[in-house]
Design a protein around this nucleic acid. Structure first.
Lengths: 220, 220
DNA sequence: ATATTTTTTTAGCTTTGTCTAAATTTTAAT
DNA sequence: ATTAAAATTTAGACAAAGCTAAAAAAATAT
């Protein structure tokens, strides 16, 4: 099945919303898509006609299996391009998203297959989000928030949820990047701050606020 | 100035046509764009309104300076992506064009600047066509057809005009690729065939028909 | 249980890029 | 110099994707 750019954007957006809320409603989708509820209704009819979602008027909607598969295809393309932009072209993490939004709509299976191979079949994009494989299978990772990591445990940075310039500036100062190994040495109950060892550097202290925005993972 | 995908396609196409014919006419453009003359007229009005071409009804048209600059921008993107697809993702030459047709419309200056740098600021694409620089300057190359190369001269393969599967098969057999050094040893007047030395291999003979489709260049 | 508010849909309009068919202009031919 | 042919443009439609304003349905509150 072939989709327009607009259809792909809706499908992807519905997918993300239904991950959170199950049934998706018109207003929420309109908000997320930065469009009007009336436009959403129009598109829902098209997507229903293409048998990508279960939808009855006034009742909310969800992607069916075909819809989810289509969504994962788009997400796969998006995240592979993000990986390419960050790792190959050396863009900052916070710049890759809008460009990947455009690249993701280029439809050529061999292109994606070759890009994937060239990048070394990555499992996670530069934001730490999983890259579905060609069959739509999503890799899993034992991911948790740094503030929840038990003392002494060694983990690896896998994602950062707050990607403001301010946050990136802090992380740069601490020399924390994706893939950086960390060990939690001590937790201070007073303000929730953590003493951590970043890679092989001297221990340092980070605030709870920062720790809550850093995602880490561990093997097995 | 910002252009739609369709505008960019027209601009690029007009540019190529006016390289050959000077003044471009509606039917020729419609043929090249695989659309109808009426559609061309519609677009010409839009492009004229955007001050990209000189056009008066029934009189033919040409891109003005702004139009040429826009065209060269699209051509630059197209050829950089072709280079990427062939050299980095290892696509065959004859597969890259349609994909580059899609990629060329992604508009992000930093993307193109970084792609260019990553590729090593190439001057020619995998078809041997020059890649305009960011200012629209087109590199030149002392290019000629292999059949016109004087005896004993050493040259480098820069392009192949006939890119059918049959031709590529022949070239593969002779181990001739872009960048391959060649020396013309002898020309046979009887049928115009050439004895050439390909790289460091033993001399071989190619037909005039093949030689007429292989472009080569030399330094200085 | 009814009234009010919120959500969703419908109806009708806009823009972009395309089309067909008809009209017009230019070019070529007798 | 007309007439025939070819090229070009206009006029009017259509599909995609969006919008506004109004209607309809569902949810909520009294």
């Amino acid at each position: 099945m072939n989709f327009t750019t607009s259809e792909e954007n809706y499908i992807k957006c519905i997918y993300h919303l239904q991950q959170e809320t199950g049934l998706v409603n018109t207003n929420a989708l309109a908000g997320e898509m930065r469009t009007r509820p009336a436009s959403v209704t129009d598109m829902l009819k098209k997507l229903k006609a293409k048998k990508l979602l279960q939808y009855e008027r006034y009742k909310g909607f969800t992607l069916n299996e075909a819809g989810k598969k289509a969504a994962l295809g788009v997400i796969r393309k998006h995240r592979l391009w993000e990986y390419f932009l960050a790792e190959v072209l050396k863009f900052d993490w916070d710049k890759v998203h809008p460009i990947a939004e455009e690249l993701e709509h280029i439809s050529n299976d061999e292109l994606i297959q070759r890009l994937d191979k060239f990048l070394g079949n990555p499992s996670f994009d530069p934001h730490g989000d999983p890259i579905p494989d060609k069959n739509g299978k999503i890799p899993v990772r034992n991911q948790l928030v740094l503030s929840d990591v038990p003392v002494k445990k060694t983990v690896t940075v896998s994602a950062v949820s707050n990607q403001t310039v301010q946050m990136l500036e802090m992380l740069k100062h601490y020399q924390i990047a994706l893939g950086t190994p960390l060990q939690v040495l001590q937790k201070f109950a007073f303000d929730g701050s953590l003493e951590i060892k970043v890679a092989k550097q001297a221990p340092c202290i980070i605030s709870e606020q920062v720790a809550k925005n850093v995602f880490v993972h561990y093997e097995l």
